[in-house]
């Protein structure tokens, strides 16, 4: 079947098998490798993407469900040349160790900050609770999200 969607700001029009999972479509067919597959069953959050601004797990979605949507991954928020404040904060605050969870964390945090400019530490922890990180113990991730929120609020 043919699907059309916007991926990180680019219009896409593709032929996909109806049972192709979204995470496979992104990673293998489109080489968008920020979303990682840590479990394939909705338990780790590494495959997080934003679909119309909502935090979704791409391993639990079919490619067909992306039709007509706007999809954002960590790459869509910025790159190393022009990083998003969340990227910068993650790097500056030591929120990244192995980094396998990081693009998903960034996306989950972006989803939160899109709705709430001034979240509490507790709220950040709650929103990130579906995104596992085995390396950091989360302290510096929460620090980074709060720091990025401050930067984003300070923007004109």
């Amino acid at each position: 079947m043919t699907i059309r969607f916007v991926l990180n700001g680019r219009e896409m029009c593709l032929d996909v098998a109806p049972d192709r999972r979204a995470v496979v479509l992104l990673r293998e067919d489109l080489a968008v490798l920020g979303p990682k597959e840590g479990c394939g069953s909705g338990e780790c959050g590494a495959c997080s993407v934003l679909v119309d601004g909502e935090h979704r797990l791409s391993c639990l979605m079919l490619a067909a469900q992306l039709d007509g949507r706007e999809v954002l991954t960590s790459e869509g928020l910025g790159d190393t040349e022009t990083p998003h404040p969340l990227h910068q904060a993650f790097a500056a605050h030591g929120a990244v160790q192995c980094g396998f969870c990081s693009p998903g964390m960034v996306v989950a945090a972006a989803g939160l900050l899109g709705k709430k400019a001034r979240p509490s530490r507790e709220e950040v922890r709650r929103v990130l609770s579906g995104n596992l990180c085995r390396c950091t113990g989360y302290v510096k991730i929460v620090d980074a999200v709060l720091a990025a929120a401050r930067v984003l609020r300070g923007r004109p």
Partner: peptide
């Protein structure tokens, strides 16, 4: 700052899995 932090956060670092 860690040499790998930014690229990993942006999702542009390449792991074996990628």
């Amino acid at each position: 700052p860690r040499a790998d932090g930014l690229a990993k956060a942006c999702g542009t670092e390449r792991y074996a899995a990628d």
